[in-house]
């Protein structure tokens, strides 16, 4: 240590030498030291004023300032809710058909609806609203219960086969396993296949047509194009709620189906329901 350097005889070197290069051991500027102390003081202030040390298993020191980022968020949310109160009120009482024609309401509903959808609906209907087996796609042009803004609003408000809501949409796809023989079921399945453009056994399908007219047309319609009063799907189109292969259709017919969609009135505000209904209505399938 402190070997002298020729060029700077007044400054000692650290004594380290790399390939003949040495390091001068200059003193630090004193204000660095003060900066360092200031940082320590600041750290102490942080520890005292803000939540810091875990004190017990119950929690940590809350800080003299009682700062909480959660309270900050709550404040922020309240701020936005207050700011939106007027438009929320207008949206909740507007004529459903008028919402999309009003640029302010529409853009508010589209943005808000997207958020509501991501939070409350995406688990079942998918983030892209494209659905999954048993959970209908909300962006195609096929609707069980109807795709006008009024229909969607009704579905979202009161749900489907949601027992807790007296106004819920109700019906069911009965289980035919006890009513029809195995052969009848097999035939009607072939018939369903044949009308939806699938590969079907012609003779069986012909026999199935009678079974269908007798048992199924009441809900699914003579032409099998579905009945929205019962939420009975169109069986002739390219879209399946549960599946269009022989095995799945057989299972549907034998055991029945009753998909449940929760009711949201009460859980979401009227404005939120209208936001999400508007949002869904404009994803490509709206009627």
């Amino acid at each position: 240590m402190s070997k002298k350097d020729d060029k700077h005889p007044e400054v000692p070197t650290t004594g380290h030498s790399w390939d003949g290069i040495e390091e001068l051991d200059n003193p630090l500027p004193r204000w660095w030291l003060w900066t360092f102390y200031a940082c320590i003081a600041f750290a102490i202030y942080l520890f005292i004023w803000y939540p810091s040390w875990p004190i017990s298993t119950k929690g940590a020191w809350a800080g003299l300032g009682h700062y909480s980022s959660r309270a900050d968020v709550a404040k922020e949310i309240k701020k936005y809710n207050d700011a939106n109160a007027a438009v929320d009120k207008r949206l909740a009482s507007a004529d459903l058909n008028a919402i999309e024609k009003d640029p302010e309401l529409n853009s508010y509903a589209m943005n808000g609806g997207a958020a509501v959808f991501r939070t409350w609906c995406a688990q079942c209907h998918g983030a892209g609203a494209n659905g999954a087996k048993g959970f209908p796609s909300l962006i195609d042009d096929d609707w069980l219960w109807g795709g006008t803004i009024q229909d969607i609003h009704q579905t979202v408000s009161h749900g489907i086969r949601y027992a807790a809501d007296p106004d819920t949409r109700d019906s069911e796809m009965p289980a035919w396993g006890d009513q029809l023989s195995k052969a009848e079921i097999a035939n009607v399945v072939q018939y369903v296949l044949s009308i939806s453009g699938g590969q079907a056994d012609k003779a069986a399908a012909k026999a199935g047509a009678t079974v269908f007219a007798d048992n199924c047309a009441a809900c699914h319609g003579e032409d099998a194009k579905g009945g929205r009063d019962f939420g009975a799907p169109n069986l002739t189109d390219a879209i399946w709620l549960y599946g269009g292969d022989v095995k799945t259709i057989t299972k549907t017919v034998t055991y029945g189906r009753k998909g449940v969609m929760p009711a949201w009135s009460g859980r979401l505000s009227e404005s939120q329901i209208r936001q999400v209904a508007t949002y869904i209505h404009q994803q490509g399938g709206g009627e």
Partner: peptide, 18 residues
């Protein structure tokens, strides 16, 4: 391009992209 889903099948069997 909307990639979730990449395409949507419509009731008449046509394919739609958004």
């Amino acid at each position: 391009p909307v990639r979730n889903p990449v395409y949507v099948t419509l009731s008449d069997g046509s394919i739609r992209n958004t």
